[in-house]
């Protein structure tokens, strides 16, 4: 007894987007690090390279909580999916009005590419996401605060940030004496041209920082 109404369901739009390969669910990444003392030099170089060179780089101050969703009742299990899925929740401490972000990053893809390629999904969510993930069965793995600068060069996102421990102390304690430098670009399944652009920018930053295709599975 259904009625034939031509309603375009919400689901149709995401399915057709996926079918047409326009969902930006792949990410190219290059990472490196620079000592705290040299950050200002690197920032000057980046300001010259990136868009909007006349304005100061935008700052960010985020907290990231990493959850692992897996079958915790069976720690000895082997097989696909038993390692669990890592879901990262990120909130902007300096902009509490912004939606929280849920991020999934997959394993790095195998293959010889100029930059590391991995599957990723960014989903803006409501602020009860931590409660939701706990109910879903996920557990907190680790959390940290990152504070730094973000710049753009076309489609490339450039971040320079320092990682701090989470705590109620007035003076935040850095995890290391260096800053992380990351170049990343979101792309679709079929478009891999951006990886070369990423490599070109990375080469222009030498010798201040050596950005590499880091296979963090070996760490």
């Amino acid at each position: 007894m259904s009625i034939n109404l031509s309603v375009q369901s919400v689901l149709d739009s995401i399915e057709s987007a996926q079918k047409n390969d326009i969902v930006p669910d792949q990410e190219f990444v290059l990472q490196g690090s620079v000592m705290d003392l040299s950050v200002s030099v690197l920032l000057s170089r980046l300001r010259g390279l990136c868009d909007n060179a006349d304005s100061l780089p935008e700052t960010f101050h985020d907290q990231e909580i990493c959850f692992i969703l897996k079958d915790f009742s069976n720690p000895g299990a082997v097989g696909p999916g038993t390692g669990g899925v890592m879901l990262r929740v990120r909130k902007a401490l300096d902009h509490p009005e912004l939606p929280w972000q849920l991020r999934y990053t997959g394993q790095p893809e195998v293959g010889n590419r100029p930059a590391l390629l991995r599957n990723c999904l960014d989903v803006p969510v409501s602020s009860n996401i931590c409660d939701f993930l706990h109910e879903l069965g996920a557990k907190v793995d680790h959390e940290y605060v990152s504070k730094g600068y973000i710049m753009r060069k076309g489609r490339i996102k450039v971040t320079v940030f320092k990682i701090f421990k989470v705590g109620g102390k007035e003076v935040q304690e850095g995890v290391t004496k260096s800053h992380v430098v990351e170049l990343s670009a979101l792309t679709t399944r079929v478009d891999e041209a951006i990886a070369t652009d990423l490599r070109i920018v990375a080469d222009q930053l030498k010798p201040l920082v050596n950005l590499q295709n880091l296979d963090y599975r070996r760490l």
Binding site: V23, G84, N128, E135, L136
Partner: peptide
């Protein structure tokens, strides 16, 4: 779950995350 319900409001991209949770 019994006695508790959590409603999450998310972007439509959340649908693409669901196949990744298929182990659970």
């Amino acid at each position: 779950s019994p006695g508790k319900q959590v409603t999450l409001c998310a972007d439509l991209m959340f649908d693409l995350l669901l196949p990744r949770l298929s182990h659970m």
